[in-house]
């Protein structure tokens, strides 16, 4: 394949996950040859992480009641009684979405299927981290799979959970390595895997005590999708661009192996 010339513009494409898959290796080599561009790339990537982290906490905030008040929800446009009924069902939908605020008699209303907001945040962060690091060729992980024991020990200590790096070989993915990430109020571990074609998926695990367990849930974002779950203080997500069924199979593998690792 003829190698095209890269420019500073490609640094932005790379950070935003817009660089075509088959150009990424050549791009990384170009960075290697151009220390100045490499430094610029590193700076912009760090800024992108800081920017995302700076506003991530907004998703955790309680939603002000004025945004849930009937007046804000079209109360002026619909007859009063209908509006009140509508508002109750809306409020119930939202309460479910944010994970249950006490004091509302929501139980007798029909609730839509939705992920708890906290689980959704884990998935959101997992996807953001996946999009940033899966695009890397040289710096995809901090510690490689060749130092797996060290990697698992280090991440377990920093995240505060007994971790394992699950084996995904039965699904065609092998471990590349892992890295430590900032999470909302603590830290998270990211284990990166890739298949024979170089396509990557990552497992994101963070310590999430005191949250209700969830089943597997699915989140679709623009560049990637994720299966996520919270179980016994482990907040986890498997993220990638792989098909939904594949991610689900990997999520199940990860769930079983993390559970076995925790007790074993």
């Amino acid at each position: 394949m003829q190698q095209r010339d890269f420019t500073e513009r490609d640094i932005h494409l790379s950070i935003d996950g817009e660089l075509p898959l088959d150009e990424r290796a050549a791009f990384e080599r170009w960075l290697e040859r151009n220390p100045e561009m490499n430094a610029k790339h590193a700076r912009y990537r760090k800024d992108a992480e800081t920017l995302h982290a700076a506003f991530a906490g907004v998703l955790d905030e309680e939603i002000p009641s004025r945004l849930l008040h009937p007046a804000a929800l079209g109360g002026r446009q619909v007859p009063r009684q209908r509006s009140a009924v509508l508002w109750r069902s809306l409020a119930a939908a939202l309460i479910f979405a944010v994970g249950g605020i006490g004091g509302f008699a929501a139980s007798r209303l029909t609730l839509p299927k939705a992920g708890s907001e906290t689980g959704a945040q884990i998935a959101d962060r997992a996807i953001a981290a996946h999009v940033i690091y899966a695009a890397e060729k040289l710096h995809v992980v901090e510690v490689g799979a060749d130092q797996k024991d060290h990697l698992v020990g280090w991440l377990s200590k920093r995240v505060g959970l007994r971790l394992v790096a699950p084996d995904f070989t039965s699904e065609g993915y092998s471990l590349v390595g892992g890295r430590l990430l900032p999470a909302a109020h603590r830290t998270a571990a990211q284990f990166m895997y890739q298949d024979a074609s170089g396509a990557r998926v990552s497992l994101y695990v963070t310590d999430d005590p005191g949250r209700a367990d969830t089943g597997f849930r699915f989140m679709q974002e623009d560049n990637a999708r994720a299966f996520y779950w919270i179980d016994d203080g482990y907040g986890c997500a498997v993220a990638g661009a792989a098909p939904e069924a594949k991610l689900k199979a990997l999520a199940k593998l990860a769930y079983r192996q993390l559970l076995a690792g925790e007790t074993g």
């Binding site: 939202l94 939705a114 907001e117």
Partner: peptide, 8 residues
């Protein structure tokens, strides 16, 4: 409800 879930 889809709209409400987008509030965050």
């Amino acid at each position: 409800s889809a709209i409400l879930q987008e509030i965050p």
